[in-house]
Amino acid sequence: MSSQEDRSTPESGGIFASRRSFLKRALAGATVGSSALLHARGAMATIGAGEKAGSTAEPASIAPSPEAFAEGNALERMRVDLHRAMQKPVADRRWGMVIDLRKCINCRACTVSCVAENALPPGVVYRPVMSEEIGSFPNVRMKFLPRPCMQCENPPCVPPCPVGATYKRPDGVVVVDYEQCIGCRYCISSCPYGARSFDFSEFHEEHAPRITDYETRPNYEYGREHKRVPENRTASPMGNARKCHFCLHRVHAGILPGCVTTCLGGATSFGDLNDPDSLVSRLSASEHVTRLKSELGTSPKVYYLT
């Protein structure tokens, strides 16, 4: 099914929904979301080493499946997909993303939400949106392309790591073990998509009279609390390579990645590519799908609909 069709089905199309059903779903969604957040701490502890080498360990319990509310828009459908995937062993999941470039309006809400979610410092951007002018006047248009980590099936960033700090999880997400990483930046040099960045231990308000609380609040990447204070510039993830991890800490709590929930145009879809009924599976099978630098054989799990 193409995304055009998808937009017009009652199953996914918010524009066909009545105001009352919208409010009902929004309320339900908020309830599920907050319930999921309450469960988040429990789930977080399971991300990481336990799932490194083909483990089939289940994450801690997440919020009840919101299937009852799933008849709403694409976001709710993806949430149902996500909960269904989380019932499976980790090795049976294969997280992927489909980005519909026709829907991207370059609002950069995804970039900003990602920075906020992961408390990203200067120089660290997991999901920039690139823009390109195509054609010449009067036949000219802008093309926008959000670039998260491609979560390659054959990630070129993994073999060069001298300490095994970066690896591909059984569910296909390429992660960084912040406590193992020595900060050599070999992986950054090896990524053909420029999807890795380095944490220079800086703050956005470095030269301001005071660094505000906003910048010193911890982040919860990989399900662990990472404190960030100017007094200790050697605590990970400072001095580490960093990258997009599909917001695993949210996903394990039953919540979609930050960039997916904040996408104004509904351009970003996320889910389990191994699940034939998931939205991403169906979208990724479109004939309009393309992947970046596919000639390299990296086999990205981020698909673009053009």
Partner: peptide, 11 residues
């Protein structure tokens, strides 16, 4: 040049 020089032993 390492981001975490004191972790060099991890190599």
């Amino acid at each position: 040049d390492l981001g975490h020089p004191w972790r060099f032993y991890k190599v």
